[in-house]
Computed example of a mutant assay.
Amino acid sequence: MLKNIRIVLVETSHSGNIGSAARAMKTMGLSQLYLVSPKYLPDEQSIALAAGADDVVRNAVIVPSFEQAIADCSLVIGTSARLRHLQSSLIEPRQCGKLAIEAVKCGQKIAIIFGRERVGLTNEELLKCRYHLTIPANPDYSSLNLAMAVQLICYELRTAFLQTTPVSVIDNSVMSPQHLATAQELEYFFAHTERLYQSLGFIHNQGVMSKLRRLYQRAEIEKNELNILRGMLSAVEKRLISVDNNS
């Protein structure tokens, strides 16, 4: 089941951090590592610091964009230390573990995203995550390196995996994977929404779209619901074209 949980590292600056993160993952039973545009590809230092988890490093999936790393996932959780504007979607490591394991037991694919060592994830990337994960460290000294953060989250994932009883797929709080819209499908919908709303003059700044993203992310939209929403957008577009042609 843990194979359906991927750890995604975005634009890592040091190859050694890839190996250290892989070691942290393997000790907790995780193996799916995705690398988004790493500054340096896995090398001898990565293998050395992996300390026996070199199989995780060698099998890492390297992709050029954040979107490709999460495209087929139904649950995307982004980590960040600066989340004051995202309180409604904020979770801590223990809750993250429980949410992820409940989802994975229903067959969903989950991505947990760790940002750049110095600056973390961008606001745009955070908006593409359903939940936002923060580690409640000492406010006077909250410095965690990348591998430490990965280790802590992977520990909570394993703890939840060992303790959580099977979740029924009938449970309304967790949809089956074939029913939930994927990150890529949601991105198509958001692009469609923004394009139409701009043409209607409804969106004048990115703040509106950011709020709409958070709203739809919280809703855990199913594929058939998303099809209805996109059908509504298309119907409005056709109506606009008809009105223009008759003018």
Rank of each mutant, 00 (worst) to 15 (best):
L215A: 14
A235G: 02
N227V: 11
T182G: 02
G107R: 07
R218F: 07
I7G: 09
S13Y: 11
G97E: 10
G115I: 10
L233D: 04
E102I: 03
L35V: 05
S20W: 09
L146N: 00
S210K: 15
R213A: 07
L41R: 14
Y40R: 13
Q108L: 08
G120D: 07
I203H: 07
L240N: 12
A191V: 13
L9R: 06
S89P: 01
S242T: 07
G115R: 04
A48S: 09
D171G: 02
G52H: 03
I18S: 06
A160Y: 11
Q68L: 13
H192Q: 15
I135Q: 06
I135F: 10
T134C: 10
R218V: 07
P64L: 00
F114W: 04
I5K: 02
I101E: 02
V56C: 03
G19H: 11
L75T: 06
Q87A: 15
V63H: 01
L215D: 04
S80A: 13
L83F: 07
D244F: 03
I101F: 01
S37T: 10
I241A: 07
R58K: 15
L233M: 07
S199F: 00
T12N: 06
G231C: 11
R214E: 14
S168R: 03
R58S: 12
N224K: 14
L162C: 08
H192W: 06
R23F: 04
N17I: 05
L2F: 09
A60K: 08
R84C: 00
G115W: 08
A81R: 13
V243Q: 13
T79L: 09
K105M: 14
Q108D: 01
L121D: 10
A149T: 12
I101T: 04
L196V: 12
E117W: 08
R118Y: 06
E222K: 15
E225V: 05
I101N: 02
E185Q: 15
